[in-house]
């Protein structure tokens, strides 16, 4: 479904990504791990178009995304749940979800939030509240809910557990797994909780200083000691 080949990104001389290639198939769960500064967030931004690559290609259903305007990419069924949540703080929870469904209008007649409220009942309780007044965990749920409101085929999640308490992070993880399992949405996950991410994925990539240093199935990665070296330096 998504194929990235030889993707490079540089900001003012700094190489954030060099020649990164990866692929994700329909309905698959792919995890991308690596220490801070490895270029994971840059990769996501390049896919959704808020960062311009210096080389390479990103093909989605055989179509070159780099030739597609950033805002138009969401309409193709790609949803990006950004790092740090980035909810619309001055809009209500419901309005945030409506904005999430902005790109869904062409593809479904009436977006329904039932699935979202079933996954995260707290959002229904707070639907009239301004998103800026939610707790960190609730904002993360809203950000994910806003992502799936567009009825995506590919859901990109950037560090969904960042800054959350372990219990809330566990809950979010479980819901992501459910989305993949029950709704058949392809998931591209960037995550700092390496063990959980690698364990639940079909395939994983390890990024270090802008390069793919390791790739393999969940089991192969768990058996490889190089992940530990990348993270801990020892």
């Amino acid at each position: 479904m998504l194929e990235i080949a030889g993707l490079s990104v540089a900001y003012g001389g700094l190489h954030a990504l060099s020649e990164v290639s990866l692929a994700i198939g329909e309905g698959k769960f792919v995890a991308i791990v690596g220490p801070n500064g490895a270029g994971k967030t840059t990769l996501f931004k390049a896919i959704s178009g808020t960062v311009a690559p210096t080389g390479g290609s990103i093909r989605y259903d055989g179509r070159e995304l780099l030739a597609t305007a950033p805002a138009a990419r969401a309409h193709l069924g790609i949803a990006h749940v950004p790092e740090g949540r980035q909810v619309f703080a001055s809009l209500s929870v419901l309005e945030n979800l409506e904005m999430g469904a902005y790109a869904a209008r062409e593809r479904t007649r009436r977006p329904s939030f039932e699935r979202i409220f079933a996954l995260f009942p707290v959002l229904f309780e707070r639907r009239r509240q301004l998103a800026g007044t939610l707790s960190g965990g609730e904002q993360q749920m809203l950000a994910i809910g806003r992502g799936i409101a567009s009825m995506p085929r590919l859901l990109m999640l950037d560090e969904p557990s960042m800054g959350l308490s372990p219990a809330v992070a566990d809950l979010i993880f479980e819901r992501i797994a459910a989305l993949h399992r029950e709704d058949g949405i392809a998931i591209l996950l960037v995550e700092q909780r390496v063990a959980e991410a690698v364990q639940s994925c079909d395939f994983g990539y390890v990024l270090e200083t802008g390069r793919v240093v390791l790739a393999g199935s969940s089991a192969a990665l768990l058996a490889d000691d190089r992940i530990r070296t990348v993270y801990l330096g020892l």
């Binding site: 950004p82 703080a89 809009l91």
Partner: peptide
């Protein structure tokens, strides 16, 4: 309002 609140997130929504 979404574009005003958070332009980058608004792009992710397809706005």
């Amino acid at each position: 309002r979404a574009a005003a609140d958070n332009p980058v997130a608004a792009i992710y929504m397809g706005i």
